[in-house]
Amino acid sequence: MKVAIIGCGGMGNVHALSYVNMPDVELVGVCDTDFKLAQELSTKTGARAFTSFEAMLEETDFDVVSVTLPSFLHKEYTLKAAEVGKHVICEKPLALNLEDAEAMIQCCEQNGVRLFVGHVVRFFPEYVQMKQAIDEGKLGRVGVAHAKRIGSHPGNLRPWFYDMDKSGGVIADLMIHDIDFFRWAVGEVKSVYGLNQRVNDIDYALVTLLFENGAVANLEAFWGYHGPFQTAVEIAGSKGIIRGDSQKSSSLQICKAPSNSDDRRFAEVPQSPGFSSPYDLEIAHFIQCIRDGSESIVTPNDAYKALEITMAALESVRTGKSVGLQLSSKLGEETV
């Protein structure tokens, strides 16, 4: 299968290195308006470098394109690719508003091409294990969850991140990882309340999700942290607690409530999943879905719903009020 990349920044490099190590996949073109970036990626991978999608389309033949551009350009190039029959692997967020997201999904459907969105947290082994623990009832009924995702401000290297109209800020670009994970693991969201403070190099957000099943999750995201990038999750249920912390060598810990046969203490059972790049797993999964027509772990509707919750959080920040969501099946349509 022949693939191409448009956008040769950080995520473009991540996708490219996954492709070049993948059997039966050939990276044939990389494109960026900053030709130096395209040339650098070309040197790393052996793919031809281009300055425009149109030139790459005219001079190469490919089946799939990775859209690893700044978020505000996702719609434009997803539509361009779909209209010429190319499958699309688009980085998250799918778009920066629901109208654009819906147009992207519909365009891909109408042109008979697949659309995949890079919600990569679903491919991190420790997050997969957390969802499995919930699905298997190990935690009982989920009650309260906490998550944080913090790091330096990416605008220091890519100034467009400072522009809310181009990046969506820390909620749309960073917190959306945890928004998607909790919807996947816990269920549909009923209402959202958000706080967000943006000053110079600081973009801090705290968002509370109330789920249809009564669970509550408090999500924290922060750009401007002076330490290393880090994530942490704690999910408490009626039967136990599960924790994950990227700063600990054993990234996942499950604390089970004692049964009658236990010695009345909580037992922490560390689990250290072997490392395999979640991006490699994600992109290989997307390529396999194209090959065999199977449904992806992350559907376009999943990406739309994550964006819908994100937009509700931003609306709550704007109004200072909780924002309700309707339980829906696809693209905001009410279920009967």
Rank of each mutant, 00 (worst) to 15 (best):
L79E: 11
L94S: 02
G112H: 13
L57E: 11
P258A: 02
I176Y: 01
L195W: 06
P273I: 05
H226L: 09
R291Q: 14
E220Q: 08
R122E: 09
Q197E: 13
V25G: 09
V317D: 00
S272A: 08
L79C: 04
V233P: 01
V233K: 09
N156Y: 11
W184E: 03
E308R: 13
V336C: 06
A215S: 14
V88N: 01
L331R: 15
K190I: 00
E126G: 00
K92P: 08
G140K: 07
E308Q: 12
L37F: 07
G29P: 09
D61S: 15
I105Q: 04
W184M: 03
A55V: 02
L79K: 10
G224F: 05
S250L: 11
D262Q: 07
H226F: 04
G10W: 12
L98C: 08
G85R: 10
V233T: 14
Q132F: 02
D201M: 11
E91L: 08
K138W: 07
F124I: 10
S250Q: 14
E334V: 08
P154R: 12
S42K: 05
D34M: 07
A185Q: 08
V25Y: 09
L115F: 10
G168L: 03
Y279S: 14
F50D: 02
L96R: 09
I134R: 05
D180K: 08
W223M: 02
T68D: 01
R122T: 04
Y304R: 04
I254H: 05
A217W: 00
R264G: 00
S259F: 04
L79F: 02
I242S: 01
A312D: 00
G214K: 06
I176Q: 02
T299D: 02
D178M: 15
W160I: 05
V117Q: 08
G10R: 14
E333N: 11
A284F: 02
E212Q: 10
Y304M: 00
E188R: 11
I287V: 14
S71H: 07
E295F: 05
P270S: 06
Q326N: 11
Q106F: 07
G274D: 12
Q132D: 10
E234A: 12
N97W: 06
K36G: 12
C289L: 09
A221M: 04
E76Q: 13
G12D: 07
Q271V: 15
F161W: 10
M22I: 05
V323W: 01
Q271F: 10
V336E: 12
Y225I: 00
M1G: 13
E91R: 07
M311R: 09
T60K: 12
M175I: 10
F222E: 02
S261W: 09
A215H: 03
S42C: 05
A257G: 11
V65F: 04
E308F: 00
V3N: 06
L281D: 07
S71F: 04
K190G: 00
L79S: 01
N21H: 15
Q326K: 12
E83Q: 15
A16T: 07
L327F: 07
